[in-house]
Design a protein around this nucleic acid. Structure first.
Lengths: 254, 254
DNA sequence: CGGAGGATTGAACCTTATCAATCTCAGTGG
DNA sequence: CCACTGAGATTGATAAGGTTCAATCCTCCG
């Protein structure tokens, strides 16, 4: 790992700058943040429900997800995270974690002490604002997921999560021209959409039959983006790319 | 309305103080915030999806809710708000509203200009932190709702929303000793839980038959809190009352 | 070559949606 | 003071979307 801490932080900073104007003092303070880097193996917990987390973290590589487990034992994935996403910023300010965070694939992670972020934000309020924006966008995605799970049928739900992931991966520069590789197994796809594995499988097959996706295991290509978009009822407004990336193309792509 | 602006703001401030330590300068600045007060009739929109809101608001009296409408036309209520809740803090920092906010009952509202909040937060970062906590708790509730709609059956879903509302109303001092009045019609209850009105009605009846609730139209009493709690799989950890109200009783009540 | 995790398939079953009335009650106007 | 009205609540019958259970089949990997 030849990359220095300052280098890692400057990558994160670049994204944060898109969420709010910063000055040199802000940048300097951010780059001076203490952090440690660690590889996290798939399925390993980074935060456990009930924990009192000491660190916030950022994904430098790989995928992670957040989940809740019902008292009855059912699992619900509440978000999926990709490179550049802050994870558990809530751990900075809330006391007890209300959900768990797990690595989906092998993850390259940067951990920043909770107290360091608090101090930073108090001394550099513009950085606080930028992180607050991050939290707000998170919230917007959660709202869309409530609607997705609550008011769309199985087909639309799966189509929707594919659209969301596709669009986010594209913005992050992680998608191929024609599609991308799903970071989730069908079981996890089910846990994210409130469906059973069996039904996920059938829906995927039917989407393929209708020519909306082409798929070999987890490898997706999307020959008919508009078709997929419209069966999903997807619009990327809720991802607030206008505050995430400059000059983003309008809603459509791949 | 004999209450002065400063008086109104001091009520809001009291709640904010629970979310983060403030000093006298913070308090002074907050109390100097410009605001206007207005009554909003039931079903009137306070924010419309697609708007670029200029104001954040706080409920001084009444109930409100937030909703999204699917491209297919289905409605999903994504949160219900009560006295003291900040509404649309996202409007302060995000550009385009990704959802609508509507009055559920007649609402007494305080509107604060978006720019005033931005300025306040930049000059008084501790206030920013406190509001950020508010947003984080919002997010926690959204996550629970995803799990509710995604992984609980109809009975548990309805039981869960009843538990949540009951507990929040209790904390806000708005519940009777034995229960409370549901602020939602059965149709709205369905829109919040991803169910049809018909099924909501049947579930409510069955909850009553099992002795978990007693109900006359919207008037609820809860003779067996533990029974209701356990069929809901409810735990109030996700409401983060430890950061909302001091000395809150542990999870159980009414 | 043997495993193991993941994907796929079939059949039976069940929860929840749909459709279509009907009923209740609080509020309004005469 | 009562009939009228309309929103919301309730009920029944039927259909559909999704689950459950139980195999079977890949395919990557040591």
């Amino acid at each position: 790992m030849p990359t220095s801490h300052a280098h890692i932080l400057s990558q994160i900073l670049r994204k944060l700058e898109l969420r709010g104007a910063l000055d040199d003092a802000d940048r300097g303070a951010f780059l001076a943040l203490p952090l440690h880097r660690r590889m996290v193996e798939p399925n390993v917990y980074m935060v456990r429900e009930g924990d009192r987390p000491d660190y916030a973290s950022v994904i430098l590589g790989g995928f992670a997800f957040r989940q809740k487990v019902t008292e009855a034992g059912a699992r619900q994935i509440v978000s999926v995270h990709i490179v550049g996403d802050f994870i558990d910023l809530e751990g900075t300010l809330l006391n007890i974690a209300d959900h768990s965070v797990q690595a989906l694939t092998r993850c390259d992670m940067a951990f920043i002490p909770r107290q360091a972020i608090r101090d930073l934000v108090l001394s550099h309020p513009r950085l606080g604002l930028a992180m607050w924006v991050d939290t707000l966008i998170d919230g917007s995605v959660f709202r869309e997921w409530i609607a997705n799970v609550g008011r769309r049928d199985g087909t639309a739900r799966i189509a929707h999560i594919i659209c969301e992931l596709g669009r986010r991966l594209e913005i992050a520069g992680l998608a191929r021209a024609d599609g991308f590789t799903l970071p989730l197994t069908q079981e996890q796809l089910g846990d994210a959409t409130g469906m059973t594995t069996v039904h996920v499988n059938r829906v995927l097959k039917s989407l393929a039959q209708r020519g909306l996706i082409r798929r070999v295991r987890r490898d997706l290509s999307i020959p008919d983006w508009e078709g997929l978009r419209s069966t999903a009822g997807f619009s990327d407004a809720y991802l607030h790319f206008d505050q995430v990336a400059r000059g983003v193309r309008p809603d459509r792509s791949l």
